[in-house]
């Protein structure tokens, strides 16, 4: 789901940075010192996910976990996604520096939508429903991220049509993998630390 440096036109790069900066600027005001370590934990998880490879026949894909980041952090998900992407670009040369804004939108906006929807529909519901909801929303987030990435690639020109087709084809197994792994992680967390998934970090502190 990462778009590398050197592909997108300047206008799309600027638009990506503008949207990301606006949202980060808005949420940064609400983030206090106590929240930072928790956001950092999810940012690190998002980073490490790119190092967990799942075999799909002869090849393998890495986990994304942006759906899980959204479920745990809600409105602060974009923050964690931006941190994770920046570190992936700087430390692993995975993604790009000039495309950070666009990539943050591609991964962060679906994460935000997953977080809000999970909280709206999942709060107070039985565990089995929440696991299914988390899996379904994550599958939707992967689809949305893929569509947004395709839209960004399309802005680079019509010549990218086969690239886009290939990109969409590789996304199909990721949809299932992400849904099942996130569902599994949510199921695990609901058993051992359910408060991590149901409320904002500040509420989590009060319950600890």
């Amino acid at each position: 789901m990462h778009i590398s440096d050197g592909i997108l036109p300047a206008s799309v790069l600027v638009a990506g940075f503008t949207v990301t900066a606006a949202w980060i600027g808005y949420t940064a005001r609400k983030l206090d010192a106590d929240d930072m370590p928790r956001v950092a934990v999810m940012s690190a998880a998002f980073f490490v996910a790119s190092l967990i490879h799942v075999k799909t026949g002869t090849t393998s894909v890495h986990l994304l976990l942006h759906g899980l980041v959204g479920i745990v952090l809600g409105s602060q998900a974009m923050f964690a996604v931006l941190m994770g992407l920046t570190l992936q670009a700087m430390l692993l040369q995975h993604g790009g520096i000039s495309t950070l804004g666009v990539n943050a939108c591609i991964m962060g906006i679906p994460a935000l939508l997953v977080g809000w929807t999970y909280r709206y529909f999942g709060t107070g519901k039985p565990s089995a429903f929440r696991v299914l909801l988390a899996g379904a929303l994550t599958a939707g987030a992967v689809v949305l991220s893929a569509l947004m990435a395709c839209l960004a690639l399309f802005s680079a020109g019509r010549d990218f049509q086969i690239v886009i087709g290939g990109f969409l084809a590789t996304t199909i197994p990721i949809i299932f993998i992400e849904a099942l792994v996130t569902g599994g992680a949510v199921s695990f967390l609901l058993k051992v630390k359910p408060e991590m998934l149901s409320c904002h970090t500040s509420t989590l502190r009060q319950s600890a």
Binding site: M42, V54, K55, T56, L68, L180, V181, F188, L189
Partner: peptide, 21 residues
């Protein structure tokens, strides 16, 4: 690429988050 593997990966991710939190 099977259900058991994904369940194990899910538990692994959950455990990573839990211990880190």
């Amino acid at each position: 690429f099977n259900r058991n593997s994904f369940k194990v990966y899910g538990n692994m991710v959950g455990m990573l988050l839990f211990t880190s939190f």
